[in-house]
Design a protein around this nucleic acid. Sequence first.
DNA 1: AGGCTGATTATGTATAGACAATAAGAGCGG
DNA 2: CCGCTCTTATTGTCTATACATAATCAGCCT
Lengths: 241, 241
Amino acid sequence: MSIAEPLPRYAEIRRELEEKILSGEWPPGHRVPSEHDLVAQFGCSRMTVNKAISALAAAGLVVRRRRSGSFVAAPKSQETVLEVHDIKAEITGSGRSYRYVILDRERRRARPEDLARLGAAKGSFDVEALTVLHFADERPFVYEKRLINLAVVPAAAREAFAASPPGTWLLEQIPWTEAEHTIRAENAGADVAHHLAVARGAACLVVARRTFQAGTTITAVTLTYPGERHQLVARFSPATR
Amino acid sequence: MSIAEPLPRYAEIRRELEEKILSGEWPPGHRVPSEHDLVAQFGCSRMTVNKAISALAAAGLVVRRRRSGSFVAAPKSQETVLEVHDIKAEITGSGRSYRYVILDRERRRARPEDLARLGAAKGSFDVEALTVLHFADERPFVYEKRLINLAVVPAAAREAFAASPPGTWLLEQIPWTEAEHTIRAENAGADVAHHLAVARGAACLVVARRTFQAGTTITAVTLTYPGERHQLVARFSPATR
DNA sequence: AGGCTGATTATGTATAGACAATAAGAGCGG
DNA sequence: CCGCTCTTATTGTCTATACATAATCAGCCT
């Protein structure tokens, strides 16, 4: 499976130290040998071991303190990298056919509830409100309600979203600097049940995302997935954090 | 607020390049000046600019190709760091009172369905099966069903879990090397509805987690949260990935 | 045109050395 | 014992250089 590729020296040293930490041989708080000692042990220059230990520090496995030395870090809180793909890519990436319809579309002055969804305190600007239904293999996959801040993305008002759905189009258009996800479970209301073809009251996974650029909200989207047909999966290791 | 701390030279260069990328001045695909050019521009050695660009590459903002140069990376797929805290820490951290009860506990030889939950193909070993209910401010917070692989953690059979609940105890006991999360929505069954004090059929957020050490599963846990009372929140920016 | 070859260029890795910053420890005076 | 300074160990950053590796490009031969 894995060919014997010659790892660079610093990666080799890093791996060796990492193994001692992950195996528990060096428990949290244990002092890692000094760079000087490691230079003698591995027979390389200090820059090389420095690169190895610095990488471990960047990964949060060790803490470095001047004069004191490097120490194995305390076990981290459970943080996981959750991949939430672009819907189009998520579906086509797994070999299924993809289609979407825009159920509703309205341009309006931002109402108080729109401002709340965007997380904006106040303001007077226009928003584009969209309701989109995405299909995977011709079955309803996710029900999307989106608000786009037209003060930031005026082009959205003129876009037909014929080639790409709004989410994909936005990703291609503007760089974002921050995003916020909220994940919860909800019972399907009449509207959602109808469009997703599930029973009323069926458990649905709701992912709400707000995307920001330099402090102002670009878009707020709520994605409702049928609970029994969709799940988010995340696999990770503490080292690659 | 922020004092004028003298950033190291490589961090300063990194910040400057990063700003050009995040502001959109350098769109995806744009070629970053070569190390040689940056050396001339910033008046430092190549190792220093190399460190800056390498950091950007590690963060996924640029892609480096030999001979070709460094290029601004395409916008990444939406990946977010989801913090899933230890339950005890999660509750006490927000100032609420914490309590738990062990509803059920059994030591048994691993059954086929246990093996499936642990993700083990086959094997003959004992497991500790636990059902725990956690309270926040005396209200049911989460319903936990856990399996512990006693072949890896024999001490779990002798532990009373009097001071800490099993999840917290395990975190303190053994280092893990990998974990897998699955998040879905489910309608509450009779059992869950009773313990969480919600209506039957109420939407619940189900987080299933498997924790591994060097390939073998340590523990598999299913956490069921009442949907209307709990949500996972994740905030992140692409640069800090 | 097609394909081979060698030069060029940019990054990848490594070395040896230097000075700075910081914190721990040693020693000393009161 | 307390507080001061001096020394020293350790990491942080930076320079200058070197060779390796890979990809592109230009030119040459058939």
